[in-house]
């Protein structure tokens, strides 16, 4: 058995990697993620906030909670240590008995939110997704897919395929998105899927564009536990 985050989660009977674990895995493969610290004890909060810097975001981080925004377990733009302590207490209380901790994360400033991901199609196997991120993913469903593994050309083509592809250009004074960096992220998502059959689904959303460069601000990884795990979010 490999000693990695996937093996450990499966050994614990889990079918979900939480945000921190998922981003840790993605960053090993070179996908840029937010700077963050996981805090499980209140006394470590101040140090974490100092390391990450202000303003920061606090989020519940638990394999038992897949959709933290819907449960109001996210606090953004925290500007002081005192505000961080209040947010920590609120999130902790709302989490109840859920395992895990609170993630202290840098605020990524960028007005454009994209999404990348992977799902396994019954007929075609792992397929990589690209599209508009944040709340627009579900509202507009403006996404495209490619079967993994992806060539660079596949990755570039799927960017042009979404209806809102002009968001990648330098609109309204924003820098154009670095398409090569974005292509590399999409190809990497495909490569992770073809390398590790235990990874069933990947969600990187939002993938925030910071000065033209995409950064994974949230992520979720679903594992194939062969239907053993009973704990589903």
């Amino acid at each position: 058995m490999r000693d990695d985050v996937v093996s450990r989660a499966l050994a614990q009977g889990r079918s979900i990697l939480d945000e921190h674990e998922a981003k840790g895995l993605l960053s090993i493969f070179g996908i840029p993620v937010t700077r963050e610290r996981l805090v499980t004890k209140k006394k470590d909060l101040a140090a974490a906030v100092r390391e990450v810097g202000l303003p920061c975001a606090l989020k519940a981080c638990s394999p038992a909670i897949a959709h933290k925004t819907e449960l109001d377990l996210v606090r953004l733009n925290i500007a002081s240590l005192a505000a961080a302590a209040r947010a920590y207490a609120e999130i902790r209380q709302a989490m109840g008995d859920a395992p895990g901790g609170v993630l202290v994360q840098e605020m990524v400033s960028g007005r454009r939110e994209l999404a990348a991901g992977m799902t396994r199609d019954e007929q075609f196997g792992p397929c990589v997704m690209f599209g508009l991120g944040g709340i627009f993913t579900e509202i507009l469903k403006d996404v495209s897919f490619r079967k993994a593994p992806l060539t660079r050309q596949d990755a570039l083509a799927m960017m042009d395929e979404i209806r809102g592809h002009r968001i990648l250009e330098g609109v309204r004074g924003m820098e154009p998105v670095d398409r090569e960096r974005l292509a590399a992220i999409l190809m990497t998502v495909g490569a992770i899927a073809t390398r590790d059959a235990r990874i069933k689904e990947i969600d990187i959303n939002p993938l925030i564009v910071r000065r033209g460069t995409p950064v994974a601000a949230d992520a979720l990884i679903v594992l194939d536990d062969g239907g053993r795990a009973t704990k589903r979010p």
Binding site: A66, T119, M129, V143, F145, E201, N205, V222
Partner: peptide, 20 residues
């Protein structure tokens, strides 16, 4: 559980795959 999987309607995957 993931958004990506719920986006992957059969039609969209087929369309993308045939294009690819």
């Amino acid at each position: 559980a993931s958004h990506t999987a719920s986006m992957g309607g059969q039609a969209l995957i087929w369309e993308s795959i045939l294009r690819q």
